[in-house]
């Protein structure tokens, strides 16, 4: 059977549908970690439950998106998609790459944060925060300044014997129309469902990086941005509060392990709030502010030599 090979979240993925947002897999001969199967379209797909669009139990996740598709994720390894007849494939892919891969991360015990991640000399810097607070806009600004990005929307943290690693995923940035305009309407962008999508190109970092700090982005009235380290259990509360699709946590057999991981992340890396005045013109000032703060707070480690 023919498939497309992708490499995301540190996983080899073989997919029966094309996903241009995912970075291509270099070696397609190795056994995949995850397979994505596209089943024949159906005219009718029964509702999962009365109240919820999704269902979680150990080793099984189901998501039903009206007029789009039914997604099933099994054991963190297999994804089955049954599209509704006549569904837009852009939309089918949108919920595959977002919610469905998110559920797969939970099943695999990877800590999925809703935010973007930037490669810096100090390691991966992650930005989380409420929807619309400007995570993607900030990521796009780092990208414009020549930083490589690991992700623009969801980043997974893995606990390894070498420490906490941020796993890169989508190699595209999704921008709301006004942020797209501010970036000077990048030429290779295309409109996808509700946002502008453009490839990071060389500005994508395909390799996992050690996690340095997680920043909770917020707004305030003052002229000058503020950087404030969180202490105590607030760190765990904020980490769990910024899980991607956090309602998918309950019922996973990894829920206990992910909770313990929240403690590990809080202990080993910096968790800080960054607040700034909401002003589209000052986004470049925020990047400069962060560069200075990081240089003061962290010790740069030489990046691993490229093999």
């Amino acid at each position: 059977m023919s498939f497309h090979g992708y490499w995301a979240y540190g996983l080899r993925i073989h997919a029966e549908l094309e996903c241009p947002e995912l970075p291509a897999l270099q070696d397609e001969s190795a056994e995949p970690d995850v397979t994505i199967h596209l089943l024949p379209a159906a005219d009718h797909i029964p509702e999962l439950t009365v109240s919820r669009r999704f269902h979680v139990q150990p080793g099984l996740f189901q998501l039903r998106v009206p007029e789009t598709a039914l997604y099933c994720v099994e054991d963190g390894k297999r994804i089955f998609i049954t599209p509704f007849s006549g569904a837009s494939m852009d939309k089918v892919r949108l919920f595959l790459l977002g919610s469905t891969l998110g559920a797969l991360l939970y099943q695999r015990g990877l800590f999925p944060l809703h935010g973007s991640a930037v490669e810096t000399p100090w390691g991966a810097m992650v930005f989380v925060g409420a929807q619309g607070v400007g995570k993607s806009t900030l990521a796009a600004e780092f990208h414009r300044k020549g930083y490589r990005l690991l992700s623009d929307d969801v980043c997974a943290v893995e606990s390894t014997p070498d420490g906490l690693q941020v796993l890169p995923a989508l190699s595209h940035i999704r921008l709301c129309p006004d942020a797209y305009d501010r970036l000077g309407t990048p030429q290779n962008a295309r409109f996808d469902v509700d946002k502008f999508l453009f490839p990071m190109g060389d500005g994508y970092c395909p390799d996992p990086l050690p996690l340095c700090a997680i920043h909770i982005l917020g707004n305030h009235e003052g002229e000058v941005p503020e950087y404030h380290n969180l202490r105590g259990m607030d760190r765990v509360v904020y980490l769990l509060g910024n899980l991607y699709r956090r309602r998918y946590l309950q019922g996973q057999d990894t829920q206990g392990a992910l909770m313990r991981m929240a403690g590990e992340i809080a202990e080993k890396c910096t968790i800080a709030t960054v607040s700034r005045r909401r002003d589209p013109e000052s986004i470049h000032k925020l990047v400069e502010f962060l560069e200075l703060e990081w240089a003061e707070r962290f010790v740069a480690t030489p990046l691993k030599e490229m093999v």
Binding site: G232, M233, R235, V236, L249, Q250, M259, R260, G263, E267
Partner: peptide, 16 residues
């Protein structure tokens, strides 16, 4: 309850 250890503290979460 989900629980995790953090510094000298135990943090519990009632997921429901």
């Amino acid at each position: 309850m989900l629980s995790t250890d953090l510094d000298q503290e135990t943090v519990l979460m009632n997921i429901e």
